[in-house]
Write a protein that binds this DNA or RNA. Structure first.
Length: 680
DNA sequence: CTATTAGATGTTTTT
DNA sequence: CATCTAATAG
């Protein structure tokens, strides 16, 4: 391939030398180690443009990312460049691992022995199914605390994604569940069988099936031959399964991986930074480019970040150097408690806004979803609008699940989970009657068919018969082969609406969600794919769709650190940075656990452009609400060592000094006090 | 049988 | 806060 650059290549002119080297690398595998804020996306997009300029057809480029947000941004930017570079070319193929996997699996569903119109379970559905199978399988109640359904799913998912024996997963990550190993083995087997019987896949199955396709002699070769280049973003967060998939593609395509081992924060999901550290084992002879020039943050902020990352010397050495000037020292705020923290954050948010930083250019970041509970109240009190990322999700709302169940059922009557859920919406129908109904709907072959409804309906209580008939009629109508997706969704919505109205007192509000879903279905392809994509790429907040009315408004962003990955804000407030939360108590059992928490803290710090505030309340309540005021004294995160602390302006709100009669600066040691001792 | 309630209880983080 | 249990009323 010739390396003559296109005569006008503005996207290359703007790159620094390292970025340029990465963008125009020609030949074997390429690993770009891109520290936080070093122009990773710019580089990746420039590389896409360069590949296009070298004559690679756009549709033969595959861009794999980790989040929907990243996928959207990159694919859009890449496509825009592509249109300039090669106007007649096709489109760059891209998406998250799961969504790309889903597309392929659906295309080759027959070869995989999947029913047509198979559904995809989200984590909630999968946990429910696991729970159902557990109850049926006898290892139900009675035994000593069996892992809860979500924990069981975590264990399963981790086993699958890491491709590691269950025993090892239990020993390493779930030692308190080890005694249930045999029961779990049995449970997971039954779960697999049941998924097959129901014609459903879970999220992990999408990767598993993709890998299976890739491993197939014929189909695998064809899949690999579809692409000339695969570019993988956030490579530090891939798991074994994902590496396998990329490797299978690499038998034909060139591979570019971008990532930062110091931002690996998805260990709990079986991701491992080992894969980026051992990149050359999977992809021999890689070129390595390290990006350290940071275009995001002020030197003072990077000093803190570098000091934190220097605490861990495993991995690739990297030191971020700021290309930005000015800025004020980051602030370490030590409020007395959660309530004072909320006030301090709100004060600073408003102060920054007074100085011209819009709310949407500020973010509050935290470790766990309940950390900002009091802050949310305080923001409400002061009339500061905010949006929570990763908070209440659409798909977790009961009425949405009900509707989605109906949609799934329409495509796949064998999906008992969904049938079960829908039937129980009928007044007077609980688990037992739903079961009888379903059994009565089976034909000789055991297939569920609506033809038997006239006999099955006798199991429905008198008062609900009319509703039941309407529901079944709508289901039948929605299954009409020629019906458009939007119409099918609409019919089901209309049939469900009266039931949901009876069930939910606030149905008026919930109905809007259903309308949005119907509207989205109208502009979608096939219904089965629509529902599955909904599950794989769920709207992150109701904002995603409720959008327009609020779009112009200014609002503060509240986000977990995990969800904040890859994003940046002018002002960042990291709250609840006390030891026990940063690092989380549960993670302090192992060195690797602590290391991952440190990286998480590092990710939080490096989201800030010009101003960084870290808050560590020193007193916390054992119970979230003020119901009892048992409290303990904590200390600031262990990652804020003396050396790190020296890089901060330390602020102690007025109330704290009074509450600490000892005075004379912070005590050298903080001993955790708990009332538990008294409760013997 | 289903529905509703009260009370206890529990290892974060998410595609 | 969500989920599970037990207990009770319809």
């Amino acid at each position: 391939m010739s390396t003559v650059l296109a005569p006008d290549a503005p996207w290359l002119a703007e790159l620094n030398p390292e970025q340029l080297r990465a963008a125009t690398h020609d030949g074997g595998p390429l690993l770009i180690l891109a520290g936080a804020g070093t122009g990773k996306t710019t580089t990746l997009v420039a590389r896409v443009a360069w590949l296009l300029s070298q004559g690679v057809p756009a549709e033969r480029l595959l861009l794999l990312t980790f989040t929907r947000r990243a996928a959207r941004e990159m694919v859009q930017r890449a496509r825009a460049l592509g249109e300039r570079t090669a106007p007649r070319a096709g489109r760059v193929v891209g998406g998250t691992f799961h969504s790309v996997g889903h597309r392929l699996v659906r295309r080759h569903g027959a070869a995989l022995g999947l029913v047509e119109g198979f559904g995809v379970l989200d984590a909630g559905d999968a946990a429910d199914l696991l729970d159902l199978v557990r109850q049926e399988g006898g290892h139900a109640t009675g035994r000593r605390r069996f892992p809860r359904k979500h924990t069981a799913l975590d264990i399963y998912s981790r086993t699958v994604n890491a491709q590691v024996p269950l025993s090892d997963v239990l020993a390493e990550s779930f030692p308190w569940c080890e005694e249930h190993r045999d029961a779990l083995v049995e449970l997971f087997r039954a779960y697999g069988e049941r998924k097959r019987a129901l014609g459903v896949l879970d999220l992990d199955d999408l990767l598993l099936h993709w890998r299976a396709l890739a491993a197939d002699e014929v189909i695998g070769r064809r899949l690999a031959a579809d692409f000339d280049h695969v570019l993988v973003d956030e490579y530090q967060d891939v798991n074994r399964l994902q590496v396998d998939v990329v490797r299978s593609l690499a038998t034909h395509a060139g591979v570019t991986a971008v990532g930062d081992d110091f931002q690996a924060i998805y260990g709990f999901r079986a991701a491992s930074a080992r894969h980026i550290l051992d990149f050359e084992l999977d992809f021999p002879g890689p070129a390595l480019v390290t990006l350290e020039r940071n275009y995001r943050s002020t030197p003072a902020i990077l000093a803190v970040a570098n000091a934190v990352s220097a605490q861990d010397r495993s991995g690739y050495p990297k030191t971020l150097r700021s290309e930005i000037e000015g800025g004020r020292p980051p602030e370490l705020v030590l409020p007395l408690d959660d309530a004072e923290q909320a006030c301090e954050v709100a004060d600073r948010v408003l102060a920054a806004r007074e100085e011209g930083v819009d709310l949407r250019r500020q973010a509050v970041l935290y470790r766990t979803n309940h950390d900002p509970a009091l802050l949310e109240l305080e923001l409400g009190r002061r009339g500061i609008p905010f949006v929570k990322y990763g908070g209440l999700r659409y798909l977790e709302a009961a009425h949405v699940k009900d509707f989605v169940a109906a949609l799934r059922l329409s495509d796949n009557l064998a999906d008992e989970m969904s049938a079960f859920r829908v039937l129980q919406l009928l007044d007077g129908v609980g688990p037992t009657r739903a079961r009888r109904l379903l059994d009565a709907l089976r034909d000789e072959a055991g297939e569920v068919t609506l033809d038997r409804w006239s006999r099955a309906r006798e199991h429905v209580p008198e008062g609900s018969l009319a509703h039941a008939d309407a529901l079944v009629a709508a289901l039948g109508a929605s299954r009409a082969p020629d019906a458009a997706t939007g119409l099918r969704a609409e019919r089901l919505r209309d049939a469900l609406a009266p039931l949901l109205r009876l069930r939910y007192p606030d149905f008026a509000v919930r109905a809007l969600d259903l309308d949005q879903l119907v509207a989205a279905a109208r502009s979608a392809g096939e219904l089965d794919a629509f529902v599955s994509e909904l599950v794989i790429d769920p709207p992150s907040s109701s904002q995603d769709w409720a959008g327009p009315p609020h779009l112009d408004e200014d609002y503060l962003v509240l986000s977990t650190v995990h969800s904040a990955k890859g994003l940046e804000w002018e002002v960042v407030h990291v709250i609840a940075a006390y030891d026990g939360n940063f690092p989380a108590d549960m993670s302090t059992g192992s060195a690797e656990g602590i290391a991952e928490e440190r990286r998480l803290f590092y990710v939080a710090l490096t989201r800030a452009r010009r101003r960084l505030h870290v808050y560590a309340p020193v007193r916390f309540h054992h119970r979230p609400t003020g119901a009892n005021d048992a409290h303990g004294y904590g200390r600031v995160s262990r990652f804020v060592t003396d050396e790190v602390r020296a890089l901060f302006d330390v602020r102690r709100p007025a109330a704290t000094d009074e509450a600490r009669p000892t005075g004379g600066g912070p005590p050298a040691r903080r001993i955790v006090v708990s009332v538990d001792d008294l409760l013997r």
